[in-house]
């Protein structure tokens, strides 16, 4: 039985509720199906953008609201999903960080939609 046509569906990443899990970063990495190489890229980019070191054992609730959105964006970008729909992506981000995330999106070869219903 086919529940979803994966050729047409998008991974939805919504800045209003950026993270699904409640415990450690590792849980989100598993959820987004990131391998070791992608995880390493994620941690490096996260530190470059936020100046905060992150590892898979860190608790998600230690992140600020904006840092959660950055993590969500990186998880989505480095996930195997070929299509992503970002919603409310920049609302919680300061200008410098928002520009860096938008730059990463421009460089990404996935099909990406940006929606901000506000």
């Amino acid at each position: 039985m086919i529940f979803m046509d994966s050729k047409k569906s998008y991974l939805i990443a919504d800045g209003q509720h950026p993270l699904v899990c409640t415990d450690a970063v590792r849980d989100e990495i598993i959820l987004y199906n990131l391998g070791a190489k992608e995880s390493a890229r994620l941690f490096a980019e996260f530190e470059r953008i936020t100046a905060k070191k992150l590892n898979q054992d860190d608790k998600l609730d230690a992140l600020s609201g904006g840092q959660k959105v950055v993590l969500m964006a990186l998880l989505a970008l480095y996930s195997p999903a070929p299509r992503i729909e970002f919603r409310h992506l920049t609302h919680s981000l300061d200008e410098a960080i928002a520009l860096q995330i938008l730059d990463l999106i421009k460089q990404c070869d996935k099909e990406i939609l940006l929606r901000d219903p506000s």
């Binding site: 936020t50 100046a51 905060k52 992140l63 600020s64 609201g65 904006g66 840092q67 950055v70 919680s92 981000l93 300061d94 410098a96 960080i97």
Partner: peptide
Amino acid sequence: KGANGSGKSS
């Protein structure tokens, strides 16, 4: 007023 992670919510 402050950057992400500067401690506003805290």
